[in-house]
Design a protein around this nucleic acid. Structure first.
Lengths: 194, 194
DNA sequence: CCCTTGTATATGAGTTGTCCTATATTTGTC
DNA sequence: GACAAATATAGGACAACTCATATACAAGGG
């Protein structure tokens, strides 16, 4: 599964503890691509360890709990490379908003608008977060030039998806306003600047 | 979870068997919003049945296996309505392609292009399927006008996402061609028609 | 006549992901 | 001084989802 490879990918950069992975990786830019529960991270590390894809050593710390630092092994590196270089099928779509909207035939326009507007807000804040991540990624010189480039490509992809969702929601909301309130019709498309 | 509500939604239209749900619903237009395994459908029907949200009766058939026809109960109807009318948080992002791309710093341009091109193809065929579903939906008069309208809105949303992915992939692939092959530089953006 | 496909339901076993809780210590806030 | 938050790892219980298999019969093709 993908979480294995996500973790291998992060460990390929440098050695990390489970806590590092949770706070610095899966709550940072990577959260735009993949999210992972803390419990799942530790369990996956354990599993990868059993499969000899990573190995760990314990670093004693005074005052704080000991850290288990994990690093990738040649076996893990090989698994990561194999996964990275070959295309994978798209996962099946599971979009609760589209599902909900498809069953909203009994809602009136204001109710529908509320649902869409809420989704719009969420997509907007995701987009905002992505912009921050992209800025951080650009100024991060700790990873190679090439790695930075592909990270930015991926962030662009994530942003494109969010923008598409926002535009679609705007169009849909506008459509509802035109047909329902019957009132002041508002012409002209929104001008960008999301 | 959403599958419960998806099934309730379909049963709200008319009574159906598990097989109907699988073949006519989750392999049709709904596959664009939510996919479900056959085993999961039957088990969910059983669970909904225990929760009194649906009830079933067995219709004997000659030659073929008996069908268990499920219909939604007032309790189920209430659960569906409650779910449909209130906004829900976006699920966490889990995009294997973005993840893979983010870790592709060690791939050369042709390898990267191959991965992106494969994804493009998949998004394209998803978009094609969506167009077919939209056409079918438009000409389907069995559901109310309002229901048809929201279904089309949802299909538009799904198509917008696919188009955004395709455009982003095209841009990314083009970028790779410009920087790597060094050869004939190709100017001007692709002109629509996806 | 066999084999596949379609119709129809269901279970067993496994993976993946979520939520809650436990443990232990330091630092910072009210 | 009490209480929360950060640092750090881990297990139990459960929910959601996948894959394979079992059962049963009819129709149609080779």
């Amino acid at each position: 599964m993908s979480l294995d490879h996500a973790i291998l990918g992060f460990l390929a950069e440098r050695e990390r503890s489970g806590y590092d992975l949770k706070t610095r990786c899966f709550e940072g830019a990577a959260s735009a691509f993949w999210s992972a529960d803390q419990a799942q991270i530790y369990r996956t590390l354990e599993r990868l360890s059993r499969g000899k894809a990573v190995k760990s050593r314990t670093r004693r710390q005074s005052g704080r709990p000991d850290r288990r630092l994990y690093e990738i092994t040649p076996i893990g590196r090989q698994q990561l490379d194999a996964w990275v270089e070959c295309p994978h099928p798209l996962p099946p779509t599971r979009d609760p908003l589209l599902l909900q909207l498809g069953f909203s035939g009994d809602l009136d326009d204001p109710e529908l608008r509320e649902v869409l507007a809420a989704a719009r807000l969420e997509h907007q804040s995701k987009l905002d977060a992505l912009r921050v991540h992209a800025t951080n990624q650009s100024s991060d010189t700790s990873l190679g030039e090439r790695t930075t480039a592909v990270r930015l490509l991926a962030l662009n992809g994530a942003m494109a998806t969010q923008r598409a969702a926002i535009d679609w929601l705007d169009d849909s909301i506008e459509l509802l306003e035109d047909t329902s309130s019957g009132g002041a019709r508002r012409k002209g498309r929104r001008i960008g600047r999301r």
